[in-house]
């Protein structure tokens, strides 16, 4: 009855809404937690104390080095064909503009291919990408590589339509990358609405001029920590089931959804198991990653440090795509392991979440998955998730305590059962 006990405690019992309340307290107290900032380190210290007070074991901080970029003041004003102040969000690692800004004519394109075809027109201009949203992993390429591709054809800056499934004039941010040998130009996201408007304007033959000002600055890497807490295994303590989310966020909104939800349902999974007096055969290890948004920087250093024990990891789990009502578990692993996971998910019949999908993944756990460790993540309402992702709308108001309860129950049942089964998940 362990599964029912976990479900009852999480969804109907005394632990109801605990993960939501804990998350609300943290994000209201600390706010957004951008890599390299004092707020992130404050959040880490709060979590360290909270996990100890919660009675979890082996609570400790593992030091890592993470990037430090700050947004500064930023603005974009369309000067022609009419005055229009635009909402923008600079992209992580972008350089700033000169103090007087960059004022230039705009070239609007809807794809990298169109940019290549019209390369001679791009020199000395601001390239605006109005790429349609297909899905996040495909469309995010424009945010990540937009500056480099524009710089290659002589552009002065790039403005990229926010990678979002829905917009209420809400720009989204995120990390972007430069390339060795290619000039670095400022880059920011604009709203879906402005990108589409400018596309319409140029299709009618209008000339568009924008003045872009960005105070973005990159600083040397700073010290940070991955936060770790455990329920030490009773029989095979050296074997691990890792359950995780990331504590860092972008510097907009509160980072409640990305990835406060994932971090706090992962904590909740251990709290539920502890509250029931359960101790699995293997160690259940909670890791709250730092600097995930910059590309899994904290997680990569954890992997480097711990990969020598890779044979001891039965399953790695990360929730980083929302904790609304999950439709099931995404899993990556051998067919034998998938069959076992399907049996485990059947235990969640009482809350009707039993499906197993492909593509278990997470920026922070992919290192392990690519090295052969089975991996799992929650499949959630991605349309809703990418409406708020990396935008000012990512606040606790988006979250729903009842949905978090259900997500935590799924997370706790899966992590506990895999941690307590007699054998590790097969990899062949």
């Amino acid at each position: 009855d362990v599964a029912k006990a976990i479900i009852n405690l999480a969804v109907y019992g005394k632990a109801q809404n605990r993960s939501y309340e804990r998350l609300a307290l943290l994000v209201d107290t600390v706010g957004p937690r951008l890599s390299g900032t004092k707020s992130l380190e404050k959040a880490i210290q709060i979590m360290y104390q909270s996990l100890k007070q919660d009675g979890l074991e082996n609570v400790h901080l593992e030091p890592v080095k993470i990037p430090h970029w700050e947004r500064g003041e930023e603005s974009a004003v369309m000067l022609e064909p009419r005055m229009h102040k635009m909402a923008i969000l600079g992209l992580g690692s972008s350089i700033g503009t000169p103090p007087e800004g960059i004022t230039a004519e705009v070239l609007v394109v809807t794809s990298f291919d169109e940019l290549q075809r019209r390369a001679p027109e791009a020199r000395g201009k601001i390239v605006v990408y109005n790429q349609p949203y297909t899905n996040y992993s495909q469309t995010v390429q424009y945010r990540v590589q937009g500056a480099v591709e524009a710089a290659k054809v002589g552009a002065l800056a790039s403005l990229i339509r926010s990678v979002a499934s829905f917009s209420i004039y809400s720009p989204h941010t995120g990390v972007q990358e430069y390339q060795d040998g290619v000039p670095k130009i400022p880059t920011a996201c604009i709203t879906v609405e402005d990108a589409e408007m400018m596309s319409r304007m140029v299709s009618r033959g209008s000339r568009i001029v924008i003045q872009l000002k960005m105070g973005a600055k990159n600083y040397p890497d700073v010290d940070s920590f991955n936060t770790v807490a455990e329920i030490i295994g009773g029989k095979y303590p050296e074997q691990v089931v890792l359950v995780s989310g990331h504590l860092d966020s972008w510097d907009v909104g509160q980072g409640a959804m990305d990835d406060g939800g994932g971090a706090f349902i992962s904590w909740e999974a251990l709290s539920l198991i502890k509250d029931l007096g359960l101790r699995p055969k293997r160690t259940l290890r909670l890791v709250l990653w730092t600097a995930e948004e910059q590309g899994g920087i904290g997680a990569f250093q954890y992997y480097q440090l711990h990969k020598a024990n890779i044979s001891k990891y039965s399953l790695v789990m990360e929730s980083d795509s929302g904790t609304f009502l999950p439709s099931g578990l995404q899993f990556t692993g051998s067919e034998k392991a998938r069959a076992i996971i399907k049996e485990v998910m059947n235990l969640l019949q009482p809350i009707n979440i039993t499906q197993v999908f492909s593509d278990g993944e997470g920026t922070d756990i992919n290192f392990w998955i690519q090295a052969g460790v089975p991996g799992a993540s929650l499949l959630d309402d991605l349309y809703k998730y990418f409406s708020f992702h990396h935008s000012r709308g990512d606040t606790i108001t988006v979250m729903d305590p009842k949905q978090m309860n259900v997500a935590a129950a799924v997370w706790a049942v899966v992590s506990y059962v895999i941690a307590d089964m007699e054998e590790m998940l097969p990899r062949s």
Binding site: D1, A3, I310, S311, K336, A339, I340, E343, R427
Partner: peptide, 24 residues
Amino acid sequence: KSIYRNDISQRTFQEIKEEIAHYG
């Protein structure tokens, strides 16, 4: 890639299913 050595299950899938059923 994987240095997981003892990947040989000692039990049949049916036995594993029964083990998991105990948690429900």
